[in-house]
Write a protein that binds this DNA or RNA. Sequence first.
DNA 1: TTTTTTTACGACACACGTAACAATG
DNA 2: CATTGTTACGTGTGTCGTAAAAAAA
Lengths: 89, 89
Amino acid sequence: MLDLKDLRCFIAVYETRGFGRAAKTLNTVQSNISVRIRRLEDEVGAPLFDRLHRSIRPTAKGEVLYRYAVKVLQDISEMEAAIIEQRVA
Amino acid sequence: MLDLKDLRCFIAVYETRGFGRAAKTLNTVQSNISVRIRRLEDEVGAPLFDRLHRSIRPTAKGEVLYRYAVKVLQDISEMEAAIIEQRVA
DNA sequence: TTTTTTTACGACACACGTAACAATG
DNA sequence: CATTGTTACGTGTGTCGTAAAAAAA
């Protein structure tokens, strides 16, 4: 089942163009990033990044996912802010 | 940290007006619902439901959360559909 | 007695960080 | 050799369902 951590992880990899750099961003290690991305790819049923020699590049599905993932996390931030401020939709 | 399962759980409780009924909806048991809602309330820092004698009622924060939670889950459904259809944002 | 939520508990699964590996430049 | 992603493993944390409790109608 889809997890928000997977989404945050994917976004970090997409934006930093690297598993190791994403790991630093999220204060964790490469191996955790690796398994999360692989599990995401298993769920999607297709690779999200092309592994090149020394860098990675998002696939077409990766590009699509990124736009939606950003929106979802923005909505969640908005929700959290609304809850503590007691603001109404 | 916020979890999508918590959100689904909260929505089920809100819509069914009961922990037990939510449990049936989600194919689980009351106790799991109870701990998830309590953890959500701990994160929010305030109760989301008023426990009445034989029923529950959402608090003001609960009402606010519900609107946003529904939107978040809708966005996620949209994202999942877009990924398998390769549709662009 | 039935229906509700809460709490305790044991078993299993998952997530995390460490470490080692392979491959590239 | 430095940097990349992958894999294996031990430990801890979490999740799940069962069972029992307490309260109310």
